[in-house]
């Protein structure tokens, strides 16, 4: 296929040419997804750990929901967030629709169940190992949670990376709540969708290759960080 070969050429020239518009789009993609994953981690790690550690009413249901929502369709999340943020919706007064803020919110909701469900598993496994010792230390429930999250940090990073992969790659949610507005809310995936709809398949695939390279780079950086730290504490 000509397009396939052309796509790699496009990807290379896009990256090497430091195309200003591409840089802007990559920058927004990274910012939105980092923020979304950061928020999801801030909420999802404690939530997952709480599901793993504490007994409370609805705990089983919550755990099941988190697991089920790991596969939530982005379009559905996008629609729900749209309906919330629309001027006709309950949060319309915030004026967040078609801004990066709305995209962060949508991706955060998409990623939260992944981070929380994986965290719950990781924390539960670690608790199995630490349980008696922490009991012996008379660690309180919050101290226990903090200890397990901190000591599980290298494994939990994998959960966060899984969330990041989901966030940076999804198109359905950011398309609806961001609107793919040029120089404002256009990210890698919506740009790819746009170029595909223009029939610029090679350019679209070229952007796709850049996106994959980006996701790989983030993963490598995170894993390198982990491998550098692990021998000291692992």
């Amino acid at each position: 296929m000509d397009d396939l070969a052309a796509a790699f050429g496009q990807a290379a020239s896009l990256l090497l040419g430091f195309d200003a518009e591409l840089i802007e789009i990559i920058g927004l993609s990274l910012r939105v997804s980092f923020m979304a994953v950061g928020l999801a981690a801030l909420l999802g790690l404690p939530l997952g750990a709480a599901v793993a550690l504490y007994r409370f009413p609805g705990r089983t249901l919550l755990g099941a929901l988190l697991n089920a929502f790991m596969g939530l369709p982005p379009v559905v999340v996008g629609l729900v967030v749209y309906l919330m943020l629309s001027r006709a919706g309950p949060l319309g007064a915030l004026g967040l629709l078609f801004t990066p803020g709305a995209m962060i919110l949508a991706q955060c909701l998409l990623v939260l169940p992944i981070v929380a469900a994986l965290s719950a598993q990781i924390v539960a496994d670690l608790n199995e190992e630490y349980n008696e010792q922490l009991h012996s230390f008379a660690a309180g429930p919050l101290q226990r949670l903090a200890t397990l999250v901190w000591d599980g940090r290298f494994s939990l990073m994998t959960a966060i990376l899984a969330g990041f992969g989901r966030a940076i790659a999804e198109v359905g949610a950011v398309m609806i709540v961001g609107g793919n507005i040029a120089h404002s809310t256009r990210v890698m995936t919506t740009a790819i969708a746009l170029e595909t709809s223009k029939g610029n398949l090679a350019l679209a695939l070229g952007l796709g290759i850049v996106l994959i390279a980006l996701a790989l780079a983030v993963n490598f950086a995170a894993l390198a960080l982990r491998d550098a730290a692990r021998p000291r504490y692992g």
């Binding site: 190992e129 630490y130 008696e132 010792q133 200890t147 000591d151 599980g152 290298f154 000291r232 504490y233 692992g234």
Partner: peptide, 8 residues
């Protein structure tokens, strides 16, 4: 079997 934290 000592349960050691993943720390220094």
């Amino acid at each position: 079997r000592p349960v050691l934290l993943r720390r220094s």
